[in-house]
């Protein structure tokens, strides 16, 4: 295996948890809900999947429990918002801090235990294909699913009836309601789905990227995911491009550390100003009714925030 190929595989594998988190959050925000608990959810689900796997000796139970916990947290945020009209952002923020503290309290017993991890599923012959082989046919199920999830979620959001309805609820819930869509149901279901994906992202951390558990195990990736969702214009494909770009810069900085001093430390910082630049570009496409952009390009780079994102929905009474 060439070193370039190895680097490629490292980037794809390392990015898997972020892909899950970004796509999960993208779906959630597309239906109009901000799940700001991302960082906390990743931490608690990383711990949960690891602990459950140790107790039950089943990796799949570990992954499933992480997914369910992630979904449950999202469900709670929506429930509190709907029942008591409490701001989603406030609730999500409190959840982040609470879950972070909770994970470090509950995780004490699991620190530095050598842990289980996912095996590769190898397909003979096919795995010999350069680059694609090791990624698709000699990899574990989580990394593989993270790749498949990208086109799948895009297709769901933009090419199916359910996806259009989901986004309609996030854009203009009153109009969606007038057209007979059950806003509440949509928000509960798809926030839950998004939460499950985020939870699986947490499991991917402890079972795949960084085996085991340690305090602050998820490296603040939750916050980074929240930024990448915006960078990606609430589109799973663009968001994933952002995730891999972020991964490339991370790996580069590791590689270059031995060669240069000083410069490589700057590399991990690059994504952030880059994100802001991209947002400026997107904004200028919106402005002036985007007159100077050819229509297809404009539609491609348009990244409008779902219009009712984070706004509590109350039906006329």
């Amino acid at each position: 295996m060439s070193s370039l190929e190895l680097t490629f595989i490292t980037i794809v594998s390392m990015s898997a948890p972020l892909i899950f988190a970004v796509i999960g959050e993208t779906i959630t925000e597309r239906v109009g809900i901000v799940n700001l608990s991302l960082e906390g959810t990743l931490l608690i689900t990383a711990l949960a999947s690891f602990a459950v796997t140790i107790w039950t000796d089943s990796l799949y139970l570990g992954i499933i429990s992480a997914g369910l916990i992630g979904g449950l947290i999202a469900f709670l945020i929506v429930l509190i918002n709907f029942r008591f009209y409490i701001n989603q952002i406030a609730v999500g923020f409190i959840f982040t801090i609470f879950l972070w503290k909770l994970s470090s309290y509950l995780g004490g017993d699991f620190v530095r235990i050598p842990g289980p991890y996912l095996d590769e599923i190898s397909v003979p012959i096919l795995k010999e294909i350069p680059f694609l082989g090791p990624v698709f046919f000699d990899n574990n199920i989580l990394v593989l699913s993270s790749i498949i999830l990208i086109p799948l979620s895009w297709f769901f959001l933009f090419r199916t009836k359910f996806g259009v309805n989901l986004r309609a609820v996030g854009e203009n819930p009153s109009a969606a309601d007038a057209r007979g869509l059950d806003v509440m149901k949509y928000r509960f279901i798809y926030s839950f789905v998004g939460g499950v994906l985020i939870g699986i992202g947490g499991a991917t951390f402890s079972l795949e990227v960084k085996y085991g558990w340690s305090e602050g195990h998820t490296l603040n990736y939750g916050w980074i995911a929240l930024a990448i969702v915006i960078f990606g214009g609430w589109n799973p494909v663009r968001g994933s491009v952002g995730v891999y770009g972020f991964g490339i810069l991370q790996v580069l900085s590791l590689k270059l550390q031995s060669l240069t001093i000083g410069f490589s430390q700057i590399l991990p910082l690059i994504p952030f100003p880059l994100m802001i630049l991209t947002l400026v570009l997107i904004q200028s496409a919106n402005k002036n009714e985007g007159r100077w952009f050819p229509k297809p390009i404009r539609l491609l780079i348009l990244g409008n925030q779902p219009q009712s994102l984070g706004i509590t929905y109350k039906k006329d009474s």
């Binding site: 986004r167 854009e171 203009n172 109009a175 057209r179 869509l181």
Partner: peptide, 15 residues
């Protein structure tokens, strides 16, 4: 009652 950020096609389909 439509969706300003949608394309005509999407807004037509929603709901």
């Amino acid at each position: 009652l439509d969706f300003s950020n949608f394309t005509v096609l999407e807004s037509f389909l929603a709901g």
